[in-house]
Design a protein around this nucleic acid. Structure first.
Length: 113
DNA sequence: GTTCTCACA
DNA sequence: TGTGAGAA
């Protein structure tokens, strides 16, 4: 198994998550979380929606979707919203930093041209 | 389809 | 903590 391949895979996954953006309705359908709950969480600071400058419809990227799923699970396990938000945010930061390091560490292995 | 606010459990 | 309804 190529470790480099895994690293690249992780990077791609993270980037892909950031690129996929959907409306609140899609998010509610995907996560199974009602739109009011999503707005409620956003109000609480659980997630940041990319409000379209002109449009009013908030857009959420899959990173936020994953975050919502994580938060929902944590709350289900007895955590409070605030605690869940804190932990998930920290997790995201850690992952982001780790991936950045990985990106720097990965010596482009196979440039087969 | 989306947004917001007020109020309740 | 999460939801309801009405209004725009």
């Amino acid at each position: 198994m190529n470790e480099d391949a895994q690293k690249l895979n992780a990077l791609l996954d993270f980037d892909l998550l950031k690129k996929l953006v959907v409306g609140i309705g899609e998010v509610s359908e995907i996560t199974g979380i009602p739109t009011r709950k999503i707005r409620y969480w956003e109000e609480k600071g659980a997630i940041q929606s990319e409000t379209n400058t002109e449009g009013s419809t908030r857009r959420y990227n899959y990173l936020n979707v994953k975050k919502m799923l994580l938060i929902q699970e944590m709350i289900d396990e007895g955590f409070t919203l605030d605690a869940a938000i804190k932990k998930v945010n920290k997790r995201m930061v850690t992952l982001n930093e780790a991936f950045l390091k990985l990106a720097d560490t990965v010596p482009d292995t196979e440039d087969n041209e």
